[in-house]
């Protein structure tokens, strides 16, 4: 096996500025998306994910300019998510230089949107973001549902049925976030990740809960994820991507380090 497992830093962008910015000494402006992207690229990030958390849709155009600026300087895959509702949103972001578009809420309310998007732009650029929350008691067999609104609203949709459906509809990849773990720093929900990864054909990115480097390795070894995504452990300067790669390599995980 020579395909490397990917490490993907995720940057939240609010109105054109990275929030929870990096504290790299080399960076003069911690909120500048281009500087953050450049730094992560130098450290060996395999991809970058930008999540637009801008509240007002009037300001969405700002994100287009962010993507344009980053794509001119950083030559690794860029995924953009947040507020993608229409085919025209996807077209705009791809034209700006994004390589993949992450669809979340719009897929839940209109699953056919994923099929139309994959048909029009190709599966390779369609990522379906899944926010999953465990609904079974700890002593019961695991069962997870899709939640919306930042994990507050249940939809009644079973996660495994959902990811299989999204795979069939043409999703090129699944970004799987455990809403139980998100922000906890106690590690990915590896049981959930493994079930999803085994159920579908397409790659799975594990997300939610990373607090240390062991968690990243566990996401691959126990969760059987194809890629791991993290935000805070990289943003706050606790760990560099290069350290994460060295750690994973020492545990026998194939990573890109050349």
């Amino acid at each position: 096996m020579t395909l490397a497992k990917r490490i993907i830093p995720c940057l939240d962008v609010d109105n054109g500025r990275v929030v929870k910015g990096v504290k790299f000494v080399e960076i003069r402006d911690a909120g500048d998306p281009v500087e953050n992207a450049r730094r992560y690229n130098l450290e060996g990030a395999d991809e970058l994910t930008f999540l637009d958390i801008t509240a007002s849709s009037d300001d969405r155009e700002t994100m287009v300019h962010v993507v344009e600026a980053v794509a001119r300087e950083v030559f690794i895959p860029l995924t953009v998510g947040g507020g993608i509702r229409e085919l025209s949103d996807i077209r705009r972001m791809l034209n700006a230089g994004a390589d993949k578009i992450s669809i979340n809420t719009a897929a839940v309310f209109n699953p056919e949107f994923v099929a139309r998007a994959a048909d029009k732009f190709g599966s390779q650029c369609i990522v379906v973001a899944v926010d999953a929350k465990r609904v079974s008691a700890p002593e019961e067999a695991g069962s997870w549902q899709i939640f919306t609104h930042g994990g507050r609203k249940p939809t009644g949709i079973d996660v495994l049925e959902w990811v299989e459906r999204m795979d069939r509809y043409g999703a090129g990849e699944i970004l799987l976030t455990s809403m139980d773990r998100d922000g906890t720093r106690i590690g990915f929900d590896n049981e959930l990740t493994r079930l999803v990864s085994r159920a579908i054909r397409v790659p799975v990115i594990a997300s939610g809960g990373v607090g240390n480097l062991q968690h990243l390795a566990d996401g691959i070894l126990e969760g059987e994820a194809d890629a791991v995504l993290a935000a805070s452990i990289f943003h706050f300067g606790e760990f560099r991507i290069s350290e994460a790669k060295a750690f994973m390599r020492a545990r026998g995980i194939e990573v890109r380090d050349d």
Binding site: T2, K5, G172, R198, R201, V202, P203
Partner: peptide
């Protein structure tokens, strides 16, 4: 693969 390990399709990511 030959040893029976599931490989995702698409082949996505950094390979040699």
């Amino acid at each position: 693969d030959q040893s029976g390990v599931k490989l995702k399709v698409p082949h996505m990511g950094w390979n040699r």
